[in-house]
C-alpha cells in the first residue's frame, strides 16, 4: 500500500528572489527519480507539503502549471521555522515534497466561459498555475480578466511574466498598487475598488485569492455585481500537517481544508461559520 507520509525527493533547480527584501522566493524543483515525475499528476489549485528533513513540513500551493512538464514551482514567504530553512536552500539541494494534495479550481467548468481572476500580494501562486494552464489552452476559454493588486510594485510576484502577459491581446491584465509611486503607470487603489471599477461581467466564473481583508471587501463587490454564489471560488489556508484528513487541525465546520478544499465556492463557504 502506498504511504503518503513519505516525501518524494526533489532537486532545487532554480531559486528566484521575487522582491528587493528577498522575503519571497520562488523555487523550481525537479524530480530526482523520473518515475516519481511520471506518477505525479496535478491540476491548478492543488497543494503540496514541502519537506525539509530535520525541520518539518509546510503546505504550499503549487505555482506551476501541469503544462510546465518536469518541474514544480513554489513561492515561499519567509515566516516561520520551516520557511526560514527553505530560504537557506541553495540550487542543487535535495528537498522532499508530498502531494499533490487537496482539490482544485473547477477549470473544467470554465470551458467556453469568461473567467475573472482576482489576486492580492503573494497569494498569486495557484492563480499563476491556473492562468498559465488556461493560456496554454487559450481556445478553451472565453474572455480572461486578471485583477492583481500589491502594496507596492516590488511586492508583485512573477514580475517578468506579468510584463509578458501585459502585452497579450487575449488577456486583460489589470495591475494595481495601494498608493501611487513615481514611474508607476498602472492603476492605484485597493483591489475591491478596482474590481468595482472594472465591473467584470457577472456571467463569468471568478477565482479570488489574497489576504483575508482583500477577500472580505471584494466579495461584497462581486455579490453586488450579481455574480452567482456558486461561481465564485477561493482557496483557503490553514495550518495543515498530514494533508490527508486525519490529523484534525485544518477543520472548518465538518470540512477539512486539506481534503474538502483548499478550493471552496462562496456557496459552500457561506454555510460554514468562521471559514474566513
Amino acid at each position: 500500500m502506498s504511504n503518503t507520509y513519505i516525501p518524494i525527493p526533489m532537486k532545487v533547480e532554480k531559486i528566484l528572489a521575487e522582491n528587493p527584501d528577498r522575503s519571497l522566493r520562488t523555487y523550481d524543483l525537479s524530480f530526482v527519480n523520473e518515475a516519481d515525475g511520471k506518477n505525479f499528476h496535478y491540476v491548478p489549485g492543488q497543494f503540496c507539503e514541502f519537506s525539509i528533513l530535520g525541520k518539518g513540513e509546510s503546505p504550499f500551493g503549487i505555482a506551476s502549471s501541469p503544462t510546465e512538464e518536469g518541474i514544480l514551482k513554489f513561492t515561499v514567504s519567509r515566516t516561520g521555522s520551516v520557511t526560514n530553512e527553505i530560504h537557506y536552500l541553495q540550487e542543487g539541494d535535495i528537498v522532499g515534497v508530498r502531494g499533490p494534495l487537496g482539490n482544485w479550481y473547477p477549470f473544467e467548468k470554465f470551458k467556453g466561459k469568461d473567467v475573472v481572476i482576482i489576486g492580492g500580494g503573494f497569494a498569486f501562486t495557484t492563480l499563476r498555475s491556473l492562468l498559465v494552464f488556461m493560456l496554454e489552452n487559450r481556445e478553451d476559454y472565453g474572455k480572461i480578466t486578471v485583477i492583481y493588486g500589491a502594496r507596492t510594485p516590488d511586492f508583485f510576484i512573477y514580475k517578468e511574466e506579468l510584463q509578458e502577459w501585459d502585452k497579450r491581446e487575449d488577456l486583460n491584465l489589470i495591475l494595481t498598487i495601494d498608493k501611487p509611486v513615481p514611474e508607476w503607470d498602472k492603476l492605484c487603489g485597493f483591489v475591491p475598488v478596482v474590481t468595482k471599477e472594472v465591473s467584470p461581467d457577472p456571467n463569468s466564473w471568478c477565482v479570488i485569492c489574497g489576504p483575508p481583508a482583500m477577500i472580505k471587501f471584494t466579495l461584497p463587490v462581486l455579490l453586488e455585481l450579481n455574480f452567482a454564489h456558486d461561481k465564485i471560488y477561493t482557496s483557503l489556508e490553514r495550518r495543515m500537517k498530514c494533508g490527508i484528513g486525519k490529523c484534525g487541525r485544518c477543520g472548518i465546520g465538518s470540512k477539512y481544508v486539506c481534503i474538502d478544499g483548499p478550493v471552496f465556492s462562496y456557496e459552500e463557504l457561506k454555510k460554514i461559520p468562521d471559514a474566513f
Partner: peptide, 8 residues
C-alpha cells in the same frame, strides 16, 4: 480523539 502532530 485522533488529532496528531507531525514533527522531526
Amino acid at each position: 480523539c485522533h488529532c496528531f502532530d507531525v514533527s522531526d
